[in-house]
Write a protein that binds this DNA or RNA. Structure first.
Length: 670
DNA sequence: CCCGCTGTGATTTTT
DNA sequence: TCACAGCGGG
């Protein structure tokens, strides 16, 4: 064992060695949270606790992987492997794959991603809406999601359009033997709630439960934890949660800060440990963050401090407009990189909205400063990737209509839109899947003999693949490759792409998917099914690699920056209306906006520059703007205000001590 | 099937 | 203003 308890500070050690009973670890930003979690697990293993009985739940695959790796570095990797580390969604998939039949679904259910979910909702709205009735598919989607996260499996009111869309959507999913992301949690909780045998099995399996980022849990996730942690005999549950109420920024996605604020109500008499020593930032940065966040009414008081000394003052830069804001930053980064011998990847620019990144990108590009931007289109949104995955999905579950529709004429195989439409109608009338409808003799009568033959062939192909897949000991990777080959998909790609170059790229994406499955198979025995699950639950992945390869200035939203750190940070657009965002006032979520700024501030390790503009281009015109009301809340002691306009207008020969200003001016005027 | 026109709407996005 | 989605025409 190569973990060392004495490397931890007192509260950290207290947290890591408290194993029994409820434990709440309030881990401020940069206080070594991940370390504490991993050491705590290592400590439990050293106490001879069965690794199979330990469950660590995170929100992202990235966090789970990181934890896994760090643990493997501390203890025998063979033992580490036995500890369950997964996301809430992964855990639910495991639970549901075993027992979902008790809820009337089949075990080979498909997980619908947001695209498929949208598609289905859109379709249902057009079929349900009366003439003149309108409903934004995206609005419906988010309302349905909200409803599910509040635990409503049934529609609130079937009389409204939304209510009946909800009801039909849910019925359609079940009919398709599909579940969406929210269903994973909803049905997982339902299963545990309604089936004591299932509940007991999982309860007995996991005697020690740990939850990371607890401030981001929603209602269903808390219920899940409760069901797993609480003991039948009423003894105190071994549940440790780690989180920071001040970093709760996903309320709009259903996260309930109250889960962490009222932890004692859910798990009585916990040990509460506060981690306040920060290992990331200077005290100037931390004091600024502390001064801001103490204005939030509902919070657990905390005060970050560090042993790093005060460091540089926080700079507050006023720019005449957003273009000059961007140019100032780009100029400064160029200058500081050479002047202070830094790397571009030491800098990050954080903003509230993606739209803000455009001017910044332009300014950086003009100066040939490399940058990387987080977000953007995912590998999994690519047409060919979805197509190929749809082939896999249909082989596993031919009743998955959405996937079947995707491939039924890709490549074209003589089943016309018209025929598909008829089959679809029949499937609704007969309350069966599209695949089943295709096989009904009733359908054959209404289509041309050619189409009927095409259908027979296609159905036969799918049947054949499915049979092969279910043979014991079959090489699924080879089979997957064969399915794609036999489908004629490659030929179709080559034919349908405008340039050979594009075709080549798309083909290579297809191969990436297959190779991804190959790699997956090497460390998993869950086969094609497991791979599809992993793909559905992992929106990013392949292009994470691209992100890490390219180096450069990081452009990132405040939300996406949570958990990251950078030596030098720029927080831009700190104006009333942007941060806090206008809509937050309407929605009454000012606290969350404040936390968002708090998260931004605490990303900085060495220097922090905040900027705002007096004018900004918005919706076509120049709009005057005011500094964010949050700026008034900051501690002026550590802040230095810089007026960009004044600075630019100051003549070069003006009295200039060899100050930062002089250097800055020089950079700005070149 | 693809392109261009028009209308609309414009935070944040772990799975 | 600008981006993008949905639809209609070639």
């Amino acid at each position: 064992m190569s973990f060392r308890l004495f490397d931890l500070n007192d509260p950290q050690r207290h947290a890591a060695t408290t194993i029994e009973g409820p434990l709440l670890i309030l881990a401020g930003a940069g206080t070594g949270k991940t370390r504490v979690i991993t050491v705590r697990i290592a400590y439990m293993l050293a106490q001879k606790i069965d690794p199979n009985s330990i469950l660590a739940v995170t929100f992202t695959n990235k966090a789970a992987n990181e934890m896994r790796e760090r643990l493997a570095g501390m203890v025998d990797p063979e033992v580490a492997k036995k500890v369950t580390m997964s996301t809430f969604h992964d855990l639910c998939v495991r639970i549901l794959r075993t027992d979902i039949e008790k809820l009337g679904y089949k075990k080979n259910f498909t997980i619908y991603d947001e695209g498929e979910q949208s598609g289905l909702i859109k379709k249902i709205i057009t079929k349900t809406a009366a003439i003149g009735e309108k409903l934004e598919p995206n609005l419906a989607k988010s309302l349905i999601s909200k409803a599910k996260n509040n635990g409503w499996s049934a529609p609130q009111d079937e009389k409204t359009l939304l209510g009946s869309v909800f009801a039909r959507y849910q019925a359609a999913l079940k009919q398709l033997n599909a579940v969406d992301f929210d269903d994973l949690l909803l049905l997982g909780v339902k299963l545990l709630a309604e089936h004591p045998d299932v509940r007991e099995r999982w309860r007995n399996r996991f005697r020690y439960i740990m939850v990371d980022e607890f401030q981001d849990t929603n209602r269903l996730q808390l219920e899940m934890v409760s069901y797993l942690a609480n003991r039948e005999d009423g003894t105190s549950p071994n549940v440790a949660v780690v989180g920071d109420d001040d970093q709760s920024i996903y309320g709009w996605r259903g996260a309930e800060v109250s889960n962490i604020l009222e932890f004692e109500q859910h798990f009585p008499n916990p040990t509460v440990v506060k981690l306040e020593q920060n290992y990331r930032s200077t005290n100037a940065i931390l004091n600024t963050a502390n001064a801001l966040i103490k204005n939030n009414p509902r919070r657990r008081p905390k005060k970050l401090w560090s042993g790093k000394g005060d460091g540089d003052k926080i700079r507050l830069v006023q720019a005449p407009d957003d273009r000059q804001e961007a140019e100032f930053i780009a100029n400064e980064i160029a200058r500081r990189k050479t002047g202070e011998t830094l790397q571009f990847e030491h800098f990050a620019i954080l903003f509230r909205m993606n739209a803000q990144s455009r001017l910044l990108e332009e300014a950086l590009r003009e100066r040939q400063i490399p940058y990387k931007i987080v977000g953007g289109k995912s590998f999994f949104d690519r047409r060919e990737v979805k197509d190929v995955l749809a082939y896999a999905a249909c082989t596993l579950n031919a009743d998955d209509d959405v996937s079947l529709l995707r491939i039924i004429n890709t490549p074209p195989r003589g089943i016309s839109d018209n025929t598909v439409e008829r089959a679809l109608e029949l499937s609704i009338k007969r309350k069966c899947s599209l695949f089943q409808a295709l096989q009904l003799p009733e359908l054959r009568k209404t289509v041309t003999p050619r189409a009927a033959q095409a259908i027979t062939h296609f159905v036969g192909q799918l049947d054949h693949w499915e049979t092969k897949l279910n043979e014991p000991l079959v090489d699924q990777v080879a089979l997957f490759r064969r399915i794609i080959n036999e489908s004629g998909y490659y030929e179709d790609l080559r034919r349908s792409c405008k340039t050979p170059d594009e075709a080549l790229k798309r083909e290579s994406s297809v191969r990436d998917v297959i190779e991804g499955f190959e790699r997956f198979s090497q460390h998993s025995s869950e086969g094609l099914r497991g791979y599809l699950d992993a793909m559905a639950l992992r929106q990013e992945n392949e292009d994470d690699k691209d992100k890490e390869q390219g180096n450069g200035v990081m452009l990132i939203t405040l939300h996406a920056s949570k958990g990251l750190e950078f030596p030098h940070c720029y927080l831009v657009g700190l104006e009333e209306g942007i941060l806090p965002h206008d809509r937050s006032k309407l929605e009454g979520t000012l606290d969350e906006e404040r936390r968002l700024l708090y998260v931004g501030i605490t990303r900085a390790q060495k220097t922090l520059t905040m900027t705002y503009c007096f004018n900004r281009f918005r919706y076509g015109g120049v709009v005057p703007c005011n500094p964010s009301s949050f700026l008034k809340e900051l501690d002026p002691e550590h802040i230095e205000t810089i007026d960009l306009k004044k600075m630019l207008n100051t003549p070069v020969e003006a009295p200039a001590a060899k100050s930062r200003f002089a250097a800055m001016r020089a950079a700005l005027e070149k």
